[in-house]
Design a protein around this nucleic acid. Structure first.
Lengths: 159, 159
DNA sequence: TTGTCTTTTGCATATTTATGCATTTTTTTT
DNA sequence: AAAAAAAATGCATAAATATGCAAAAGACAA
């Protein structure tokens, strides 16, 4: 399944390059070894929350919401990612492990992302319990976290 | 020419209502007495810098850049508008009059809008000189200012 | 493993959005 | 005021994007 590779790559491309159509993105992806159809991209972009904004000179560009985020916010995100040591699943819930003392800041960050997939979080000292809403699948939670904190899924401990 | 009424109305509608397609916006406009075609709307939205963003539940919505702006920023805009007493044209340039002492803050605001139509501004105590780039028509400058500070054109002193 | 259920994906196509061109309206110049 | 230039707009259509449906791939439980 390509999606777990594709989404992060799309995010990366969008931050590094000026993309103005899905076909253009499609070609960029292919040149990096990932190929799919425009239909799939359309769905990916929606899932990633990517918006299409006028570029001010007659064209359009695709833009990650982050672009509008302040440098401080981007900083925070990187910090949060660096502080997470692993993810494990148990009882249909998700446990995010951080280095000691960082759980509550991380939980706060996740809460504030405002994703409707997540009902809430409970943080100890180095562990966060992420509670998904009813009807949200494990897969949806993963994708959701991947959107909030790209690259996170690589820290998933398989059971 | 409807455009001077249409653009501000579009902005108003977008801040008040959730719009998810140009046709929907078209109908809303018609219900408020302004009618045009989808083609015109497409051009308007581009000019206003309106972007189309995933709404997080499978659909899309049109969003003014402002939506992403902080409340403080919106506050500032309202304040700036309230402080402008009039606009006059002279020698192909634009003079914006403010209440005394407010010119430089206003000029700063205009500069920071980052519009390419405007080369720069010079502020005194209660007057700002707005200098458009070569090749930018009076009309373009007006529209540009209308985008930065909606409602402004009503303060234009006819010559 | 086998069958069941969920997710991902492509294909074909519907829907939506953008645009070239011609026309009308507005602005600017003479 | 008349002529010339620029801008706005609609129409028809091109281009881009989204989506229903079916097939394939993967996850999961028994």
């Amino acid at each position: 399944m390509q999606k777990t590779k594709r989404l992060p790559l799309i995010e990366k491309i969008l931050t590094e390059t000026l993309i103005s159509s899905q076909d253009e993105l499609l070609r960029k992806l292919k040149s990096k070894g990932i190929s799919c159809t425009q239909a799939t991209l359309s769905r990916d972009l929606r899932q990633l929350g990517v918006s299409r904004v006028p570029d001010g000179s007659g064209g359009y560009r695709y833009s990650l919401a982050e672009k509008n985020a302040s440098p401080a916010e981007r900083e925070t995100k990187l910090h949060i990612i660096s502080v997470i040591s692993g993810i494990v699943e148990a009882k249909g819930l998700l446990l995010v492990k951080t280095i000691p003392g960082n759980a509550s800041a991380t939980a706060f960050y996740i809460d504030n992302a405002g994703r409707k997939e997540i009902a809430g979080t409970i943080a100890g000292d180095d562990t966060i319990l992420v509670i998904p809403h009813d009807g949200i699948s494990r897969m949806q939670v993963h994708t959701c976290l991947e959107i909030i904190l790209p690259g996170l899924h690589e820290k998933l401990k398989k059971s």
